[in-house]
Design a binder for these strands. Structure first.
Lengths: 214, 214, 214, 214
DNA sequence: TATGAATGAGATTTCATTCAT
DNA sequence: TATGAATGAAATCTCATTCAT
């Protein structure tokens, strides 16, 4: 359970809380969390600044709640039919492509939320939260499953290392283009999203299937 | 020339400017740029806050100068014998390994500087500077050169696309582990730096040499 | 009747009022009245903040009620057999000792309550309440009685002045050690409570019986 | 050295500091420290609220400085000819009278300052400062000296205990009438200051010279 | 009636930037 | 020129008190 949030008993309260989160999410589309003031969030949500502090201990209290929100949406999504695309009835290449596509769409949809979480985490190396851990291990497990499933095709001789690299790769390769499009250099800007995703998947495919080192 | 810096013709002035940059770099080892106050920089450099404003017209003025500093070090380094490791007399795999190693070492050495630049750029999507462009195109050119050199080995049928992806890949794959080690999940923490770099290179190698799509 | 309290005719209301006072008294053990929030009192009493305002029209309204509470306990105590220790069948010195002992015990028992009342009164010189007046005159009368009773032993030639000084003395001499023990300097900390009380009584005894001024 | 104060190098700075202290002292004549806002102090001193924080870490930082100020004035005073009234060439009774008079005058002169210090200390039992210790031990030493000087006249058989009680007594007996005149009950209000001081001294004299306990 | 929610009105504090010596 | 002082403009947060259910 997120730390910065306070418990609530009334429905009006929940409404306010939701307005605040919605307001923050909207503001995050244009600014960094650090550049958004509590007064701004309150004004956007149509409540008083003091009301913010009934729901969140402090401004920082928003962060764990944002993470929860993101994880919940992730869970919702991963439970949805679209995400459950059968991986088993296709080739490794197709499977990787689907994974890449899913990751990319996630990032696109949760763009501002993720950017806020990402930047806040990276800007405050000291505040180490463990909220993301469950996601991370889930991703690792998924990669291990893939590798096990297509073991026949895969030439990498250290399966665990390969799974770890794959998880690391998928977790990072989308960030720049997905979260910070404007900053991104011109490299991939000629590629359509579809092409980009395909190349990303092929990158992984090549890694897993290349001729073993001599 | 960077925008936030003021021109100076006196050598004492330049000394102060250097002290300030040195001080800032030191402070960046422990905090984010946003959390460092001008007074702090001045105190660390042993000058008065007012003096800062004779060298930089705003606090933000440090940023382009930091970027210049970083690029200059990059140029120095790329002009050094170590960086000019002959790529021509080796296999593609070896070449990629050398590139990965060089990239990794750069990030390690310029760690705090890069982190500051990276985070600042990503946190302020509005302030679009063009300082990094020269680096970006240089990297792209290098990738194109590699691909041209080893064209025989490379199976990817769109060389330009491959070069762009390669540049994008090398530009991003090190960031998480290199700049934000503490935040990084456990995925790659079992790998030594050497192993990590090797896997990173192999990732690229696999991409370039995999069997073409059918 | 104290001003800040609202009249109430229902027994449930009285119960809540008592819970609130009990809660406040408990909180006063660790903090100054000014540092206790209405919300805190309400929470400790297990009621809502809004309910507090059905019993007390302002936070300040607690103060006169606290004073009433203190005076009531004082009355209860002074009506009890323990307090009615017969002063008449003993020497002046013994009588003073008993008075000192009684005063000291009172302070010990009503410690937090008294401290709150004392500090609040002293911190708000403007808000002059008359609640304490009855206590003050009672003490003066008691001193006059003592002096009259032992007139033979007493050398002070202005009985009224002596009674006033005695009342003033007993009303103040215990405060520092009794209410603010931690702050008190080391002076009397080597003395046991018993010794301290004895010295306090002797102080008064000496005053009343010393050889008259020449 | 007081903790809340910052060091300063310029004379303009000292001026501001002095204005602030002066302003605070003035405000303390009418309100408790807790009821005075930093903005008020700043406005009274004719500077901006932000300037306050260049001289004092936080609002609480005023307290140790007030204590220093008080102690310094005490030192100044005790070094002055008036305070050095020769105690040796008089009777014990006269000596005590002079001590009482000196204590009373001190309190009168430093009234607001002392009240602020006293109340703050008593309201924040947790924050134990040691600033007053030197004063306390000095007072004890003085009492011991008096007792030694007039040993012949003094009947109390435990000289150390007597000195401690005397110090405790003189340190507390003036507080109510001296610092909180308005609150004080009517007991001593019929006495002139002069009479009051005389009685206070006699109180001590009686204690020291009464016939020993049997 | 009783309550949790809401808030107006500040309080303290910070800091990039300018001023005055 | 170089500096320490000064400050305007916020930002975060608190809390006694009222509102609405």
């Amino acid at each position: 359970m997120s730390q910065g949030a306070k418990k609530t008993h009334q429905s009006r309260s929940k409404q306010t809380r939701d307005s605040l989160l919605k307001a923050l999410e909207k503001l995050l589309e244009t600014k960094d969390f650090a550049d958004i003031s509590v007064a701004e969030i309150a004004a956007t949500a149509g409540v008083s600044p003091a009301s913010v502090y009934r729901r969140f201990d402090k401004k920082q209290g928003f962060i764990p709640v944002l993470i929860d929100l993101y994880l919940e949406r992730l869970r919702e999504w991963s439970a949805s039919p679209g995400a459950r695309a059968d991986i088993e009835k296709c080739t490794l290449r197709q499977a990787l492509h689907r994974i890449a596509g899913a990751g990319w769409r996630q990032l696109q949809q949760q763009n501002h939320l993720m950017r806020a979480i990402y930047l806040h985490g990276r800007s405050h190396l000291d505040l180490l939260g463990t909220e993301g851990d469950q996601f991370e291990s889930a991703l690792l497990v998924a990669m291990q499953a893939i590798i096990a499933l297509y073991a026949a095709e895969i030439t990498h001789n250290d399966k665990d290392k390969a799974a770890a690299m794959l998880a690391y790769y998928f977790n990072n390769i989308f960030i720049e283009r997905g979260l910070f499009k404007k900053q991104t250099g011109a490299w991939t800007e000629n590629l359509s999203d579809q092409d980009f995703v395909e190349e990303v998947a092929d990158f992984a495919y090549g890694y897993l299937t290349m001729s073993p080192r001599t």
